[in-house]
Design a protein around this nucleic acid. Structure first.
Lengths: 216, 216
DNA sequence: ACCTGAACACCGTTCAAGT
DNA sequence: ACCTGAACACCGTTCAAGT
C-alpha cells in the first residue's frame, strides 16, 4: 500500500533535522527552560533515547539549533542588505536594526546562540557562520570608506564597536532592562526598540568618525 | 562545654546568608551549570531540604544571588568614581571599564544577574539596585553637561547608548566572541578588553555629542 | 542502521516527622 | 522555629535488546 502524505513524518529518513526543528519550536514556544532532550523526542514522536542515534549528547543538539539560528540571522542580514538603499550608512543602519529585531523575535534562540555554556566551540561550520554579521559590517564599512561615505579609521574597530552596541541593546531589550520601553504595549515596544537601534548605529558611526579620539 | 570556634558554622543563625555565599562560590568556581539547590545545601552542610526554610524555591535563591551581584557591581562603580579624576569623561571611562572588568571577573554571576529566566521581577530591592549603573551614568552625564564638558543632547539617551555598548562588549567578551582577543593569554586578554572598553566609551560619547544626527 | 524499554544517578519540590 | 529523611516526578545518559 502506498504511503499517505502525513502518517509517520520521519521515524527513518530525516530524524536529525526533525529533532532540530522540534527543539527550535520548543525554544520559541516554551523557552529555554523547556528545551530538554526528552521533550524534543516527545515532539518528534520518537523514544527518549532516539536522539542519541543522531547527536552524541544534549550539547550537540543545542549546537545544531544554534547553527540554524546563525543561518537564519545571516539570511535576514542578506535580505536587509538587498532591500536597503545603496549607501553604507543606510546599509549599516538596516543591518543593525535587523540584528536587534531578530533578537526580539527569537529571544531564547539568540541567547542560546551566544551562550558558551551551551554551544561548544569545536564545530567549525558553527564558528564560521557565527561570524557572518561581524564580517558583513567590516565589509560594508570598507566599501563605505572607499566611496568616501564613512570617515572611520579602522573597519574592524568600527565593526567591533557597532556589534558591541547592537548586541548590548538587543540583550538588554530581551531581558527587559530598558525601563523606558518596558511599559509600552508590544507593538510600540518593537517600534521603540527599532528606533533605538537605528539611532545607536548613527551614534557609533558618528563617534567612530570623530577625529579627536586619543588612544589610552 | 563551650562551643569551639568552627564546629557547626551555621545550622541556626545565618543559614540564609550562608546559602547565598555558597551559591556565589559555586557560581564562581564551577559555573552556572553546577548551581543547584542540592549542591548549595551540600556546601552549606545542611540537608537538601533546609534551603526551603529560607527561600520558597530555587528562583528565590538565585534572585538573592543576583541582588548580591548588583550590590558588588555598585560598590565597584562607587570605588571607580572616587578614584577617577574629576572630569565627567574620565569618570564615564572609568565606570565603563569597571563594568566590563566586573563581567570578565564574574562571568557566570553577571549572566545570571541579567537573565530574566532566572531572576523574577517581583523583588523591588533587586529592581532598585539593578538600575544603579544606568543611573550613575545619567547623573554623571548631567553633571558633565552642566560643567560644559559634554555636548550631548539627552543624558538618558546618552546613558542608554553607553550602557548598550558596554553591556554588549562585556557579554561578547565573556562568551569569547571577540576573535581578536581570544587567542591572547589571560592577562593580555584582560588588558586588551579594558582598552576596548575605554575606546568604546570615547566613541559613544563623541557620537552622542555629534550634531548631525537626524531622527529616523 | 535505527529505534526501544529498563535502569541509574541526579535534581526540584513536598510532606510527615523529629528537636 | 528550624531541620531531616523518604518519596515523587522529571531529566541526561547508558545498555542490552529488538526490527
Amino acid at each position: 500500500m502506498p504511503r499517505k502524505s502525513t502518517p509517520k513524518p520521519y521515524h527513518h529518513g530525516d530524524l536529525k533535522n526533525a529533532l532540530v526543528a522540534a527543539g527550535l519550536h520548543i525554544l520559541n514556544e516554551q523557552g529555554a527552560g523547556a528545551l530538554n532532550l526528552r521533550e524534543v523526542a516527545r515532539r518528534a514522536e520518537v523514544s527518549h533515547t532516539a536522539p542519541y542515534r543522531h547527536f552524541p549528547d544534549k550539547q550537540a543538539l543545542i549546537a545544531a539549533i544554534a547553527e540554524q539560528g546563525f543561518e537564519m540571522l545571516a539570511d535576514e542580514i542578506r535580505r536587509s542588505d538587498a532591500s536597503a538603499s545603496a549607501g553604507a550608512v543606510e546599509k549599516l543602519i538596516a543591518a543593525g536594526s535587523t540584528y536587534v529585531m531578530f533578537a526580539l523575535d527569537h529571544p531564547a534562540h539568540i541567547k542560546l546562540m551566544f551562550s558558551r555554556d551551551n554551544v561548544r566551540a569545536a564545530d567549525s561550520d558553527l564558528y564560521r557562520i557565527s561570524k557572518f554579521g561581524f564580517e558583513y559590517m567590516v565589509r560594508t564599512i570598507q566599501t563605505g570608506q572607499q566611496k568616501g561615505e564613512l570617515g572611520m579609521s579602522d573597519p574592524v574597530d568600527g565593526a567591533k564597536h557597532l556589534w558591541s552596541a547592537l548586541h548590548g541593546l538587543a540583550m538588554l531589550a530581551i531581558e527587559r532592562q530598558l525601563v523606558m520601553l518596558n511599559d509600552l504595549p508590544e507593538d510600540q515596544f518593537r517600534a521603540g526598540l527599532q528606533s533605538e537601534a537605528r539611532a545607536l548605529v548613527r551614534v557609533v558611526l558618528a563617534g567612530s568618525a570623530s577625529p579627536n579620539l586619543q588612544k589610552s
